[in-house]
Amino acid sequence: MAVLSVSDVGISFGGLRAVDGISFGVEPREIFAIIGPNGAGKTTLFNVISRIYEPSTGSIVFDGRDITRIPPHDVVRAGIARTFQNINLFDNATVLDNLMLGRYRHHRSGVLRQTLFTPFVRREKLADRRKVEEVIDFLELGKYRDVLVAGLPYGVRKIVELGRALAAEPRLILLDEPSSGLNVEETRDMVFWIQDMRDDLDMTVIMIEHDMSLVSAVSDRVLAMSSGRMLALGTPGEVQRDPGVAAAYLGG
């Protein structure tokens, strides 16, 4: 039973069909990669799943629940967290506060209790902090804990953003080009983390990725897109051998 089912999803910008009739299902604890040349519509597909864009056709079902029309801030409550292609962090806050915001969906206290900072709020905050420390340990971010995000190198910012998504404890995580801009060593760490997310944290992972060696190393299945449409769907080997995929990358 697929944890996420995308059926016939499409969206246009003006005359441009950015995503056109995409359908696929992702199994629980699967690592699912989406590849395709620039402008293929991969990020747009993520934006539709996370409700930033309104799809013109199709539906998205997560965990048996139709999420095609839920408010965008409820997506993470449903259990889906994401990262952005062009890192989207809270620049004027510390690494710790960025991760703490990842816990936002777990809060229950109202405005009055927070204004009084009651023991309940304090307990919630402490529970968050414990969870965030687990993420900090997992991603080895300890030495950046109290540093403002704005001043951090690109690779670290990328990891902080991953940490913020993990802090939400999602069941499904969407990673938009997790290895882009990372050096060899950082990319290798990323591979381990992605595998650990599945093996240790029981998460399902969908990632948009250009690095084919990374894709082959970690993903169970691959969806290839071009010009908003599906080119191929299968194991990394099958998709790489697909003649249509090769043509798309050669600028066909």
């Binding site: 965008p72 993470v76 952005f84 809270f90 806050a93 990842g102 900072f117």
Partner: peptide, 29 residues
Amino acid sequence: RNIVRAPLGLAMMAIRDSETAAQSMGVPL
């Protein structure tokens, strides 16, 4: 001061820095 150190204040600062990211982390703008 209490609001600022509570989740609500964090959500406000998140909105200040990036509405898109705040929303995707569950902040009802």
